[in-house]
């Protein structure tokens, strides 16, 4: 009986602490206003299920590269071309990356540009050595 009340009290207290911590950590983010294009881009990201193969902020599928910093490392024109005239994806011989039309591709990149500005606190980590840079082909 007493244990049951103690348990309930523990739930309420920890739920409150947890909610408080969450509020505290997203407070600054909630105040940011994102351009409408970027929000439209997020809808395109969701509708096309990009997350099933790609990760964003490290969360998502494991089949394709993380896109958190893609706009910082690759030119916009190149990315638009990639999305509108998608190439065959290794290891496939025929299967192509899903295609978007130009407008959708631009909005999606607006979104990814905003994402690349998020301060991820030291992730992704820099490689151990500098002799083989991250984008080396």
């Amino acid at each position: 009986m007493r244990a049951a009340w103690l348990y309930l009290a523990a739930i309420v207290i920890f739920l409150a602490i947890f909610t408080g911590a969450i509020y505290f950590s997203i407070r600054s983010v909630l105040e940011e206003t994102w351009p409408r294009e970027a929000v439209a881009g997020k809808k395109i990201w969701q509708e096309n299920g990009c997350v099933e193969c790609h990760t964003l902020l490290g969360n998502g599928g494991y089949a394709a590269v993380d896109l958190t910093r893609i706009t910082a490392t690759t030119g916009r024109e190149e990315l638009v071309t990639f999305l509108t005239q998608p190439p065959v994806m290794r290891p496939a011989r025929r299967q192509r990356h899903p295609a978007l039309d130009r407008e959708e591709a631009e909005r999606l990149l607006d979104y990814l540009e905003q994402v690349s500005k998020i301060d991820t606190r030291g992730w992704p980590p820099p490689p151990f050595t500098r002799t083989n840079p991250a984008q080396g082909e």
Binding site: A21, S25, I26, L57, G58, N59, I118, D119, R121, W123
Partner: peptide, 11 residues
């Protein structure tokens, strides 16, 4: 899960 998604370091 909140280490690298843009939330503060205390997590």
């Amino acid at each position: 899960h909140y280490y690298w998604i843009g939330t503060p370091d205390f997590w």
